[in-house]
């Protein structure tokens, strides 16, 4: 058979493309439910980790079930507010922050998760922003004064391993514990990520990641913008 002719070449290319396309779509579709489940459990784990729950999930035999059980036990309420602090209809867990942030300010739906452990209530708020290579996101949990940070967890799609990707390490996240997002005049100041290191005793600043400046700036802008949306809501509840 002449394997160099035009007809053969076209047929070969056409059949190859169809076969490969069928194979890949089959693989993608059959693996999709497992991938979605991984993403959902990870989201729950991230929410829980801001209030120091489920940190030992890695040691469990059935990590997925463990996280689901903890989530059902400790996350006692979740609802959506808008930038005026009013409650809005909807399921907080399925809100896609990247779509909400693209909307004009007063149309945004802002999820709030409420956790309760040993009688302490905390609110947990989602964050979403841009890193160097792709989106970064995270959660921040606040004390009942709506200013002091209980815990933060960050994650990213494709930041550089060892550099920007370090935002999801405990070393970086634990710096946020105890920082305040309102200053003494009760003005919203957010928490800044400072290149070269925050001065000792700064309650509104943490150290940036060496070699990860653009990612650090992205996280800084993300906290500023996302928590900024909630300011009215915070003020209504602060007493």
């Amino acid at each position: 058979m002449n394997t160099q002719g035009n007809t053969y070449t076209f047929l070969y290319a056409a059949i190859m493309v169809v076969v490969v396309a069928a194979l890949l779509s089959f693989a993608a579709m059959s693996l999709k439910p497992m991938q979605d489940k991984n993403v959902e459990v990870e989201k729950k784990q991230n929410i829980l980790s801001t209030v120091n729950i489920g940190l030992d999930a890695g040691d469990q035999d059935n990590k997925m079930k463990y996280i689901e059980d903890l989530y059902a036990k400790y996350i006692v309420d979740s609802y959506i507010v808008n930038t005026k602090g009013e409650k809005v209809e909807g399921d907080a867990f399925t809100v896609d922050m990247s779509k909400e942030l693209a909307k004009p300010n007063d149309e945004r739906k802002l999820p709030v998760f409420v956790s309760e452990k040993d009688g302490n209530k905390n609110v947990i708020l989602p964050l979403r922003g841009k890193g160097l290579w792709g989106p970064v996101w995270g959660y921040i949990a606040l004390e009942a004064d709506y200013s002091t940070i209980v815990g933060a967890s960050f994650d990213h799609k494709s930041e550089t391993p060892g550099l920007g990707a370090e935002i999801n390490t405990t070393a970086f996240e634990s710096q946020f514990v105890g920082k305040k997002i309102f200053d003494e005049q009760n003005k919203f100041v957010s928490v800044s990520i400072i290149k070269g290191g925050a001065p000792k005793g700064d309650i509104h600043g943490v150290d940036a990641i060496s070699g990860g400046t653009i990612t650090s700036n992205g996280v800084d802008a993300m906290i500023q913008e996302c928590l900024g949306n909630y300011v009215t809501y915070f003020k209504q509840h602060q007493k």
Partner: peptide, 21 residues
């Protein structure tokens, strides 16, 4: 793409670390 999909479904943590690579 197959390797990437399989990593995402079965070893999600590792696949996240490798991300774009």
């Amino acid at each position: 793409i197959l390797v990437d999909q399989v990593l995402k479904a079965f070893v999600y943590d590792v696949s996240k670390q490798l991300s774009v690579f």
